[in-house]
Simulated scan of single mutants.
Amino acid sequence: MSHKIKIRRATTDDLSEILDLFSGSVKQIGQQDYEPKQIAAWAASVHNQSRWQRAMSDQYFLVAVSNEIIVGFGSLEQEYLDFLYVHQNHQRQGIANLLYKVLEQEAARAGHRQITTDASKTAQGFFIRQGFDVIKENRKQIKGVELTNYRMSKKL
């Protein structure tokens, strides 16, 4: 990575940039594992502004910044890793690793004994490399479209 990545707490001013990153990442990266209608349903969650604002205020919510641009974000709610996304143009640069390590340290600092997450098919390999195990396959409905993801857990 040639440029310096800074990890910091997200602020409400970051929301529109976070939503753009989320939508672009889901649409681009999800293509390998999900059908177009599934990607559209998943990406449509950007419209649930109250969910995003609540996550940003209630969770340990971080952004990764490079050259004043948000290139990734992640969040932790208690022991649950809710979000971990990297900009589609900044994949495979170690950004998810950096975010994940800070989130894991925060979970341990807060006294949690494990981290759980619901990982997409696309992200499952990343979490396995971090030491997570698959607990079960989930099938969830978003806007009438079924998506598969995986409940995963890691002991701390």
Results as ranks from 00 to 15, higher is better:
Y80G: 04
F73S: 01
R151W: 08
K37D: 11
T117C: 12
V63F: 00
T148R: 08
E137R: 13
V71C: 09
Y100M: 10
D20T: 13
E68N: 13
D133C: 11
L98I: 09
V86E: 00
S57P: 04
A41H: 05
T148W: 09
N48S: 05
I115W: 10
Q91F: 08
Y34I: 01
T122D: 09
G111V: 08
S57N: 10
D133W: 08
Q124G: 01
V145C: 09
P36G: 00
E79A: 11
Q78Y: 05
M1G: 14
M1V: 13
R139M: 11
Q93I: 07
F132G: 04
L19T: 00
Y150D: 14
L84T: 01
H87E: 04
E35K: 14
R139H: 15
A55H: 12
Q91T: 11
N97L: 11
H112G: 06
R9L: 15
S66H: 01
G111H: 05
Q91S: 08
R151D: 13
S50D: 15
F61V: 03
Y34P: 10
R151S: 15
S57Y: 03
I115K: 07
R151E: 14
S75R: 02
N89G: 09
D14T: 01
V46T: 15
L21I: 04
L156A: 13
A40Q: 12
S66L: 05
S45D: 10
I39M: 02
I29W: 10
Q88Y: 12
Q78I: 01
Q91D: 10
N149G: 07
M56P: 02
H3L: 12
H87D: 14
Y80A: 06
A41G: 07
A108E: 12
D118M: 04
T116C: 12
R151G: 08
Y150C: 12
S75N: 02
K154E: 00
Q124R: 13
Q124P: 03
K27Q: 13
H87G: 05
V63I: 06
L98W: 02
G144E: 10
K121Y: 07
Q78M: 06
D33R: 07
I142T: 03
R92S: 14
